[in-house]
């Protein structure tokens, strides 16, 4: 038989009907090391305290119900084993997901998450120029299917949404899941609204992404939302040009490096926010001039700048060829 170990588990408990404030309740269970956290929580429900409330269904990481914070990381309880958690943290601390109001215990209100999902028009929009072939499937090559990357694997668990600092800072940001879903429609050869989708999302929050990649590291299905957000940014600039502060910043960054190999901060701020923006940042500029004046100087061309430009050329060729 597999040996059991003592597993201390602290679970966030809060029932708005009776508790003034949330509290943690400690449980101790004897479990084999490879026991999923969900199994531990269900054991608490069936053997210790059946008032513990949480969402769960499939227990095999396909329904997306049991996303929560386990030792401060957003992930699925069914997919996280207790052993490695004990090794790293000595115990298992379970909290509800972030960026969504707590309803009770580990159950959060996913209303905002689903509203953000709805914002990206999550269905195929018919393309009048290319109607669906009558009685036949649309032809699509394996290569075209590959262009979805892992986005069809998304189970809408919300772990990325919970982990996202951009969502925390700016509630109007749709969050990683909705953007990964948007990408799924943008690359779908059957969709008739590709351009509208890309135009709409530029001012609609695409550039709020901080590129921290916490969504990708928290995703239980390896959907890699941050990489798809990067792809969307490229596609959006390609479609519309750099129309947002975010996209102008990205393009400016690229041009700076291309021309000099180093950033020209003055130039980059001007490129991103225009002359008015530059003036608005004057106080910050003055502080910078006192402390690190070298940053405000026009940088010299770095040694081997021609190599950088060659790299750019190669990358652009590759992009054009793809």
């Amino acid at each position: 038989m597999v040996e059991s170990v003592a597993v201390p588990i602290s679970v966030y408990r809060y029932d708005p009907a009776r508790d003034a404030t949330p509290r943690y309740v400690d449980y101790s269970l004897d479990l084999p090391r490879h026991t999923p956290v969900l199994t531990a929580l269900l054991k608490i429900r069936s053997e210790i305290d059946s008032t513990l409330s949480l969402r769960y269904s499939c227990r095999s990481s396909i329904c997306g119900s049991c996303a929560m914070l386990i030792n401060s990381k957003s992930r699925l309880a069914c997919q996280t084993q207790v052993g490695p958690e004990l090794d790293l943290h000595g115990r298992v601390v379970v909290d509800p997901m972030r960026n969504q109001p707590v309803l009770r215990d580990l159950v959060v209100d996913q209303g905002p998450f689903w509203q953000d999902y709805e914002r990206i028009v999550p269905h195929l929009v018919p393309d009048p120029a290319h109607p669906m072939p009558e009685g036949k499937p649309n032809p699509m090559t394996p290569e075209q299917v590959d262009r979805f990357y892992e986005t069809p694997r998304c189970i809408a668990c919300g772990a990325c949404y919970s982990a996202c600092p951009a969502k925390e800072a700016d509630p109007t940001f749709p969050g990683p899941m909705a953007l990964a879903k948007l990408y799924r429609f943008v690359v779908d050869p059957r969709d008739g609204a590709r351009r509208e989708r890309l135009l709409r999302i530029q001012p609609g929050g695409l550039w709020t992404c901080l590129r921290c990649h916490l969504c990708t590291s928290s995703c239980p299905k390896d959907v890699r939302p941050s990489e798809r957000i990067r792809d969307l940014k490229e596609l959006a600039i390609h479609e519309q040009g750099a129309t947002e502060a975010g996209s102008r910043h990205a393009v400016g960054f690229k041009e700076n490096l291309h021309d000099r190999g180093l950033l020209n901060e003055m130039r980059l701020v001007r490129q991103t926010d225009g002359v008015v923006g530059l003036l608005r940042q004057a106080p910050q500029g003055l502080r910078l001039a006192r402390k690190k004046p070298e940053l405000l100087k026009k940088p010299r061309r770095i040694e081997g700048q021609d190599q950088v430009q060659k790299l750019y050329e190669l990358l652009e060729d590759e992009e054009g060829g793809a």
Binding site: H123, M132, P137, P139, M140, T141, Q144, V145, R190
Partner: peptide, 19 residues
């Protein structure tokens, strides 16, 4: 199956583009 494909199901494909 065709209807579900038209609704947007991303089926796996054969090299010739068929299901």
């Amino acid at each position: 199956v065709v209807e579900m494909e038209h609704f947007g199901t991303i089926f796996s494909r054969a090299p010739d583009g068929s299901l």
